Simulated assay, not measured.
Amino acid sequence: MLKKILLASALLAAHLACTALDVNQATVAELDSIKGIGPSLSRQILAQRDQGKFKDWADFLARVPGVKAKTAARFSDQGLTVDGTAYPAAPAKP
């Protein structure tokens, strides 16, 4: 029985890790599940979102202090989206 519970928990965690999380709809707990977003940053994100939804990643970066392109890319790699869109990948170096 314990093995079944652990398996179900592992499958749920894997599913949640692969599921996109939109910053315009996420709860504090969901934002906190993104590595690098803690309680303080979650509150900042929600405070800015209360002023109006984020239109795109550029809007998110402009309104959330301390989040720059590299950080946004890490958040996006973990499934965070803005209005359903992942952070644009950096162009490949020749």
Rank of each mutant, 00 (worst) to 15 (best):
M1T: 10
L2E: 12
L2H: 12
L2Q: 13
K3L: 13
I5T: 08
I5S: 05
I5G: 03
L7T: 14
A8V: 12
S9P: 01
S9N: 05
A10M: 11
A14L: 13
H15R: 04
H15P: 00
A17C: 09
A17Y: 08
A17K: 13
D22F: 08
V23Y: 07
V23W: 10
Q25T: 13
T27D: 13
A29R: 11
E30T: 07
E30W: 11
K35P: 06
G36R: 11
I37K: 05
G38C: 07
S40Q: 11
S40L: 14
S40V: 15
L41E: 14
S42F: 01
S42E: 04
R43F: 15
R43Y: 13
Q44W: 03
Q44N: 10
Q44C: 07
Q44V: 03
I45N: 05
I45K: 06
L46M: 15
L46V: 10
A47I: 10
R49E: 05
R49Q: 11
R49F: 04
D50A: 15
Q51C: 06
Q51S: 09
K53F: 01
K53V: 01
K53D: 11
F54R: 02
F54S: 02
A58T: 06
D59W: 00
F60Y: 06
F60S: 01
L61E: 01
L61V: 02
L61S: 02
A62L: 04
R63G: 00
R63K: 09
V64H: 02
V64E: 03
V67L: 02
K68H: 00
A69W: 01
A69Q: 04
K70T: 05
K70V: 03
T71V: 00
T71A: 05
A72E: 01
A73S: 11
A73N: 08
A73F: 00
F75V: 00
F75K: 03
S76E: 06
S76M: 04
S76K: 04
D77A: 14
Q78N: 05
G79H: 12
V82Q: 06
D83I: 13
T85A: 11
T85C: 04
P88Q: 07
P88Y: 03
P88W: 02
A89W: 01
A89D: 13
A89N: 09
A90C: 05
P91A: 14
A92E: 14
K93M: 08
P94S: 12
